[in-house]
Amino acid sequence: MTYDSKLKSEFIDELFDAFMLLESKEEYYRFFEDICTIKEIQSLAQRLKVAKLLREKKTYNEIEEITGTSTATISRINRCLSYGADGYNLVLDRLEKKEG
């Protein structure tokens, strides 16, 4: 199955191909430290945590308190969970399976 997206481009395909070549958490740390700022990495991690908390039925206020994320960002992530490309749900389902 091929995913069609407005995001799709040759450059992004190459970036995702690079991700798939990483073989360990240490390699991810090394690559992301070079390719992103620390703030960008923290923001990505924070968004994933917000998505997880939303699926756990936490309120916006609880999530804001736990993560420091603005309610506008929480709302955007919530819309992605319900109406997005299903990427958050895909990853969160797999994480739950791995942890379970």
Rank of each mutant, 00 (worst) to 15 (best):
R94P: 01
I41P: 02
E62R: 07
S82K: 15
E27W: 09
L44K: 09
E14H: 08
S24K: 03
E99Y: 11
L15Y: 07
L54P: 03
Y88N: 04
S82H: 15
R55V: 05
S82V: 00
E10T: 04
R47A: 04
L92Q: 02
K39E: 12
M20R: 06
L44P: 01
Y28F: 15
Y29N: 07
M1Y: 12
F31R: 10
E96L: 10
E96M: 08
K25A: 11
I63R: 03
E40W: 05
R30A: 11
R94D: 07
L15F: 14
R76M: 11
T71W: 11
L54D: 02
I66P: 02
E27T: 00
L90M: 13
G84M: 10
D17W: 07
E99H: 03
I63T: 07
D17M: 10
R94M: 15
Q42M: 13
D93R: 07
Y3M: 12
E14A: 13
K6L: 15
I35V: 10
L22C: 02
E96A: 12
R94Q: 15
E64A: 13
A51H: 02
L48T: 03
F16Q: 01
A85H: 04
E33A: 09
L21I: 01
M20C: 09
F11R: 10
A72G: 01
D93P: 05
F11S: 11
A85M: 13
I74G: 04
L22V: 07
T67R: 04
V50P: 04
L22P: 06
K49V: 05
S43R: 06
L54R: 02
Y88C: 06
K57F: 09
E40G: 04
D17A: 09
L53M: 15
Y3E: 10
G84R: 05
Q42F: 07
R79M: 12
D13G: 00
K52Q: 07
E26F: 08
D4T: 09
T69V: 14
I35C: 06
G84T: 05
Y60M: 08
A45C: 11
E96T: 04
E99V: 05
L44G: 02
A72S: 13
C80D: 10
